[in-house]
Nucleic acid binder design. Sequence first.
DNA 1: ACAAATCCTACTCTCTTGGTAGGAATATGT
DNA 2: ACATATTCCTACCAAGAGAGTAGGATTTGT
Lengths: 168, 168
Amino acid sequence: MITDVYSVTKIERGTSVMMVSTKGRYALTVMVDLARKSENGYVSLSDIAESENLSMKYLESIIAILNKGGMLKSLRGKNGGYMLARDPKDYTINEILLLTEGTLAPVNCIMQDGVQCDKAATCSTLPLWAGLDKVIDNYLKGITLEDIIQGNRKKMLGEYCESCEPAE
Amino acid sequence: MITDVYSVTKIERGTSVMMVSTKGRYALTVMVDLARKSENGYVSLSDIAESENLSMKYLESIIAILNKGGMLKSLRGKNGGYMLARDPKDYTINEILLLTEGTLAPVNCIMQDGVQCDKAATCSTLPLWAGLDKVIDNYLKGITLEDIIQGNRKKMLGEYCESCEPAE
DNA sequence: ACAAATCCTACTCTCTTGGTAGGAATATGT
DNA sequence: ACATATTCCTACCAAGAGAGTAGGATTTGT
């Protein structure tokens, strides 16, 4: 009488695969906003929150990540704020999301630094996940902040862009 | 003195973007297992759980989804079990994951049935998410269950497949 | 009848997400 | 010097989903 023989001991935790949460999405929004405004000097948190209509306090925690990750320059005190550390074209979307999300792998059997699973050698679905991961990675590495502020739909939507003239 | 003026009322819930959780991953594993064994007739849950070393009870809930979604045929009682309803080549990975995960969109501002966000018209990051969604969708629709059981690395890994002979 | 299966409903537990609160440190204009 | 505007930092909290369990009812083959 086998009932719970197959019970699994190690419980996989929820961090299975969050791909892009509000954190990453807001982070990107912030970066875009800063890319547009950085020329005029430092931009304050309240300014960004107002433009994007997001909670200041929550945004603060997200900007902190970006800032610590070296994506921004900051200045305290009156007239202080944040600005991009580099040129918009030198940020890939991949690195922005990677910083805020931790990982973008579609499943937790794929880590940034390769594969981490003891069944990897015999796992027949692994190539699928690896392939998916590559496809995502590749796409996000190919788009920069500049592409977004320029509204480069062709690059972002590719063949799916209906407003773009057809490629030859 | 503005402090919480920018507070956001509607709180976005965690369902932001789960991409592929254990549910979807196990579901795929089950489908692969069945694809391999279905020729011999119905395969029992305990058989699958044993082969794949997963909890029977949890697997049960996942198979229920697959079954209700019309992906499987089932037979109760002794010698009963499950088998694929169709030929392995007639299942795309996309539909399997869609059934179990609900959505595969990388962000919750993209829904299956198009876009659902009031800021969509002015949102500069939307094309990015839409493009990412398309890329993922496209990839997963291009792979079938058969590809997995055949170990078609070339199709799954594409240019990233190191063991494949280089494409001309 | 009995055993081996699927089916069904409900429950639990833990972690992450999505925030909030309050204050300390710092820079600027007057 | 001082008030003010800003970043920085450390906690804290509520809700919900993910991951899995429990227990039984029903069905079928022998």
